[in-house]
Write a protein that binds this DNA or RNA. Structure first.
Lengths: 339, 339
DNA sequence: TTGTATGCGTTATCAT
DNA sequence: ATGATAACGCATACAA
């Protein structure tokens, strides 16, 4: 295996000192070098196929130019758009994004966090908003590396947070259903230990109460199709009257609800309206096409990245909370209340 | 900003030399150090919150313990499962996965590749199988870093490749349609410059010819819903009889076809059967639920990772081609031919 | 404008 | 079993 070509090799071929090569190859310092020698250096570098060693550079500069992004579940389609938003702004600034998946598992969350810390990422974007994962957030802060929370806020404040307007979205959903004549609505919320669950559940309580409709909240075990299916199952088995409309904790839960309703022979929306949350990719291709609260996922990612960048440059963070507006996308899964 | 704690700090606190600390903290060399001192070192490290610097280590060992994964489009839901498969086997070996998105863009492909090369990834997994992206593959080989191709083979052979059985899948799909009585089938293939497109189109030609049914192939501009929509558009506008069944290049194209058919008032499957390819997540939640060829996405990723690991350890690669079996999942988008 | 020298934090090779 | 030392490849403060 031929040793990789280093800055010294380039210097030798270009007949200059390696310091000059370094200056020539970095945009920052390029101005300091003579046009002639610059050309020579560039040519030599190209000729040798020189590729700068980011590890050596990072060691010297103590900046890795990498950002760690920790998400709970890559398979949830809301994350790819967010990641794209993140990448777009970060790549433009020369950063590489390290994506780490936790599978919603506490121990892997800790281990990927550790691994990212070892790589000396210049900052973190955390999308794993359980109320009880303070540890990782605080450890990041303790390690003195900037953190931005995304989509889901952590329990206590004090850290920058970017998310969609959860309360506003729920209010929109409830208003839509009330307008369609629904008088009995159930919120099939996410797991109680997610911060988004809390915001949305509280907003639901407020909105439904204000509208004067009968309402109730049940909690799914996870933000997945399966958990949605199970929660619908409980709902159907419970004694008492069945609601005419369901507000789901997110689109996956909504999908699960619909699957279970279909199994029961309950048609959506004729016999039961369902509203999702997030407007994930493909929401319009499901059956029925999902009425859901649109979250500007890509923008959320982009804003988180910008906030982080600002934090990195400033050397300290202001705990700004950025709440992006949402909207209701009415499609096929909601209709007039059955009478 | 307090300087990060280094191995020297730990050494001082534990009252040993930093070389000893290094040995104590690495599983490989741990045996060489006295049990007593090992305990002291560990305690000191914990006490100081020591986090080893992967850049310094990588510089010294010339192994970054990172793997670069280049994919064309994170938004295509077939990739997350593949990535999971990859991560699972790589993380277990202590590797960190660097995921890079190209958005199917040649120039970003080159730039992310370059960036990964700078980071001195120990290997590449490439899922960007355009027939014409030889350059990147060869550059990787030239840089002497192991490469495994995934899902889509590159033009020429010579590199390890893991993929599903494209030809077999198409044969399954055609047989299924023929059995349902379809005598006129069109293949809505992907873009011609994808290697999978070629394998599948060839297989379609063979299978349809052998079955003795009327057939034709058209090419979508991309593997997206929109491109599928457009290709259906052309199909409907063309003079002559309309087929009774469509075999799509992948599930997204199938979705696009169905969207366009619906806009035309053509019901699927009553008036037109559609078969997808990949069995992407949510395929069963669409309307109608997609009949499609199931690809073992996770396994493909895992096998690619294993192959790469072997290549890294061996220091050289055997150009093995691993083809994993596929199966047909019959759901709602196919039915008897209209008469 | 260019060269010199130093150190970033590790690990590997030697020596003890 | 542990300590001393050098080297990995680069950027930068300083000198020329």
């Amino acid at each position: 295996m031929p040793r990789r070509v280093t800055i010294d090799d380039v210097a030798r071929l270009a007949e200059v000192h390696k310091a000059t090569v370094s200056r020539a190859l970095n945009a920052q310092t390029r101005g300091q070098v003579n046009a002639e020698t610059l050309k020579r250096v560039k040519k030599a570098a190209r000729q040798l196929g020189y590729v700068p060693n980011a590890m050596a550079r990072g060691l010297r500069t103590s900046r890795s130019m990498t950002i760690g992004v920790i998400i709970p579940d890559l398979m949830n389609p809301i994350f790819p758009p967010m990641i794209r938003g993140i990448e777009r702004v970060l790549q433009a600034q020369g950063y590489t994004v390290l994506i780490a998946n936790t599978d919603s598992h506490d121990d892997v969350e800790i281990s990927v966090f550790e691994s990212l810390l070892q790589r000396r990422v210049d900052g973190f974007i955390l999308a794993t908003g359980r109320l009880d994962d303070q540890p990782v957030v605080e450890e990041a802060a303790a390690a003195d590396v900037p953190v931005v929370l995304v989509n889901r806020g952590s329990g206590i404040g004090g850290y920058p947070l970017v998310s969609g307007d959860n309360a506003g979205g729920i209010a929109l959903a409830v208003a839509h259903l009330v307008e369609l004549g629904h008088r009995h609505i159930v919120h099939a919320a996410g797991p109680p230990n997610f911060s988004t669950t809390r915001s949305r559940a509280e907003a639901f309580e407020v909105a439904a109460t204000k509208a004067g409709v009968r309402h109730d909240t049940v909690y799914a075990a996870a933000l997945t199709i399966e958990a949605g299916f199970d929660v619908a199952d409980q709902l159907l088995k419970k004694a008492g009257p069945i609601p005419t409309a369901l507000v789901a904790g997110n689109d996956l839960v909504a999908l699960g609800l619909i699957r279970r309703l279909r199994a029961e022979g309950l048609r959506c929306p004729e016999e039961m309206s369902v509203v999702g949350f997030n407007d994930m990719p493909f929401a319009e291709d499901f059956w029925p096409p999902l009425t859901t609260v649109h979250m500007p996922l890509r923008e959320i990612g982009a804003e988180a990245a910008r906030l982080l960048l600002r934090g990195i440059e400033a050397g300290e963070q202001d705990a700004a909370t950025l709440t992006l507006p949402v909207s209701l996308v009415v499609r096929g899964s909601t209709g007039p209340a059955r009478s």
